[in-house]
Write a protein that binds this DNA or RNA. Sequence first.
DNA 1: CTGAAAGCGCTTACAG
DNA 2: CTGAAAGCGCTTACAG
Lengths: 383, 383
Amino acid sequence: MAKTTIRDVARLAGVSPSTVSRSLRGIGGLSAGTVSRIKEAAEHLGYSVSPAAYRLATGRTGTVAVVMPYITRWFFAELLGGLEKAVREGGLDLLLYHVGDTAMRQQYFSSGLLRKRVDGVVLVTLALTEPEVAALRALDVPVCMVGAAVEGFSSIRIDDVESARSAVQHLVNLGHTDIAIISGDPHEPMHFTVPLHRRAGYHEALASAGLMARPELEAHGPFTVEGGYSATVKLLGRRKLPTAIFAECDEMAFGALRALERVGLRVPEDVSVVGFDDHPMSSYFGLTTMAQDVADQGRLIGERLVEAVMAPAEPRPVQLNAPTHLVVRHTTAAVGRRPERRSGPAGGRTRPSPSKLPPGGDEQPAGPPELTGARQRRKETIP
Amino acid sequence: MAKTTIRDVARLAGVSPSTVSRSLRGIGGLSAGTVSRIKEAAEHLGYSVSPAAYRLATGRTGTVAVVMPYITRWFFAELLGGLEKAVREGGLDLLLYHVGDTAMRQQYFSSGLLRKRVDGVVLVTLALTEPEVAALRALDVPVCMVGAAVEGFSSIRIDDVESARSAVQHLVNLGHTDIAIISGDPHEPMHFTVPLHRRAGYHEALASAGLMARPELEAHGPFTVEGGYSATVKLLGRRKLPTAIFAECDEMAFGALRALERVGLRVPEDVSVVGFDDHPMSSYFGLTTMAQDVADQGRLIGERLVEAVMAPAEPRPVQLNAPTHLVVRHTTAAVGRRPERRSGPAGGRTRPSPSKLPPGGDEQPAGPPELTGARQRRKETIP
DNA sequence: CTGAAAGCGCTTACAG
DNA sequence: CTGAAAGCGCTTACAG
């Protein structure tokens, strides 16, 4: 059954293989009788074209590659979901490539692993070097980018700078002046641009409010809960305590909330927190955040790629801009709402001892475990 | 450059194409000089074999398919990460297929979309029907399963029944007798077996403790935060309130914690909660849970598939068993630790009014937003 | 409207 | 140890 060839179908239908081929691809004006006879024969034999032969004959693979630096992180899984849907609905197969570090990048780009293998590629949040761009161009297939843009390639992205600026502006509007940022490591080897841009937006907001950017208000770590936790721990160990924290992604914000909780700082009374993404768990935390629709970005760029792959002539690249919007929940509040800080300009607040800060792991002091509690209050804050 | 063929290499190296082919595949005893000359020529021309031609000539695709019903949910994203790594290290490509509903299943299995397209397949948590199994066998390639087992296919899975039983036994050991379960919908159309098995384990634990299974202690929803939230809301709207809840996955447990919080029930004082999976955010919640290493399962079955695909003769299928272990944190406690419930066997507890339960969405009453607070207490419960 | 033939770029017995 | 040739299963000008 799986071995049925176009010749078998031709024989059974009493026509030549070329006719079968044309008929199957719906080409040319075949007589209706012939067409239905062929269709029947093909059905009867359970025939399906050999992708390998088709590829060799036409040069088209019917496949696109998705290349991303993470798979399990929320943003990437979400994007992959949207992409897969669009790509499959477009009738193409999706090849998944994970490039987690610079060594893997080498492999993928310079050694041309994608060559002759795909009809299109989408790169996710990868900041391409010149040689990488050149290698991609040499592939001579449509290339799409998510979260970055390169001349000649289609792309979709949010405005990270402006979105971050606006998130921080929300904090400024609430009267905060000591606004910290927990960001991605600006020196990590993959050179992701997202953290850079969001940090730039943070600085813009500060500057336009006439606030100084102070190094002691910046800390970084990976875009994970743990990364946000440890970055916040660093922040809390310094001389100057922030009254607000901008987290470059929600996962980091979750970690920040955890760290603040552990040292007894209340959110938003003592510290406001704003995140970025609107992760599905953010509403649980009542997290104020800059929302983006990631699955939709995947869908849109996927459709774009399908279109480019299918088109007889490659259409001009387009730069799509995905929207973001601030979702105000309950982790941000005006500075004025923290009455206990009014007692003095500088001395009215006790700094938690950094030495008491626990690591981010699982181990915790014994004592009566209580997770919820605080009924009256919390009942109104968490959906 | 991308158009270089084996003939070009042969010409440049001064040998025949067949020799080039052999040399490149490391076959036969070629003279060292020839080999290096060929290698040089290939390098110089930037030659890489055409996958399509290779496939057509050998019948091997160098590709495996991963078929799963979800992409973004934690378990699946995590598994995919492990799989991708193993598959790529094995030198194979990974084709991703999402089959989200029964209609898509039809497509994938009956219409033989995978035919001649892959050298192997891994199906994730799909409960295959007989025709589907037959279609898969007709593919005549190694098939691996995750979270399910079929005669003749290799598989990896945890013991869901036993693991769930053991999680619930933990609750029994703490003296709980009114133990509820929030489970996957037993009647959803995809017929996933995981919820069924975990529910069976729950019933086993109950039975062996001499406890009655009571329908009013069961509620279900999808394996998501929202699913767990709404299932718990259902639970709390009934006559009989549980003193403990077993959530079939951690995401549901998060939703349960949220719902309990909202009605002012404390965890674990009023209600104990145990989850399943050990999601990375579980330690944040101090959630007691039955842990499994999902990425490792992906890696193991991926290696197994690679091995089967590469082997000259298909090795015998193996059934791998992945371990689980209970991680006790702070959402479970002995019944005796809830002093306020001692006042009376049945009347000592106020049931929260179900009418006050809000929907799972984002909207919440205004009022002073407070997320953390309860400093002294919480600081000891959350890592 | 339909066939016969060449060609896509490899691999692999088969000869030498 | 190395070539020449057939074949993998399609598609597509090229004839008719």
